[in-house]
């Protein structure tokens, strides 16, 4: 085969490479929409938020020395309702320490929402301006973060948690962080 003939093979070779990449993308279940957090393995942002219903403010200090999960939610967010039973289940089984941050929500609405759908959180802070969420790099609710004993963000999950995500991501992570 001369080099000239090889030239005619180029388009095919290029396409095969592309198709292989598409196939990899499809079969690995890779989701281009999922953005990794820029804060993974970095210290969680400092914050101090008003507690829901006049409770003491929620701050980073509350987390020191523990592995905690922070869930951003809102009463106006439909997917949060979808996620609620899973969070409730985790709370009931007492497997994680879950804190809630109500994103861009009025305290009264958040209270009503938690009454209606159940309150899986140890405590809830109210982020009315959304500034704390921005510091975490939140771009939509719900989002869930894991913070280790040293106050570093180790995991972020975008969108409603699913039983699969709990099994395949959250539980192994918990094991890892609990052991270290």
């Amino acid at each position: 085969m001369t080099w000239r003939r090889a030239l005619y093979l180029l388009p095919l070779v290029g396409f095969v490479a592309l198709a292989a990449y598409f196939f990899y993308g499809l079969s690995s279940g890779y989701n281009p929409e999922l953005l990794p957090s820029a804060l993974i393995d970095k210290p969680a942002p400092q914050f101090q938020l008003a507690g829901l219903n006049g409770a003491v403010p929620l701050t980073n200090q509350d987390f020191t020395g523990q592995v905690v999960f922070v869930n951003f939610f809102a009463s106006w967010c439909a997917p949060c309702r979808e996620e609620s039973p899973i969070l409730m289940d985790l709370a009931r089984r007492n497997v994680i320490q879950l804190y809630g941050i109500a994103y861009k929500d009025k305290p009264a609405d958040a209270t009503k929402y938690l009454k209606e759908y159940g309150d899986p959180y140890r405590r809830v802070g109210v982020d009315e301006t959304g500034r704390t969420a921005i510091n975490f790099g939140v771009y939509g609710v719900p989002e869930t973060y894991a913070i280790d004993r040293n106050g570093h963000i180790r995991w972020r999950f975008v969108g409603p948690l699913t039983p699969q995500a709990v099994q395949s991501q959250l539980m192994p992570l918990l094991k890892k962080l609990g052991a270290s």
């Binding site: 809102a74 106006w76 967010c77 439909a78 997917p79 949060c80 861009k104 771009y139 939509g140 609710v141 719900p142 975008v158 969108g159």
Partner: peptide
């Protein structure tokens, strides 16, 4: 469309 999936303030 994203608004329907993730929650966004209108």
């Amino acid at each position: 469309v994203a608004a329907l999936l993730l929650g966004f303030v209108p």
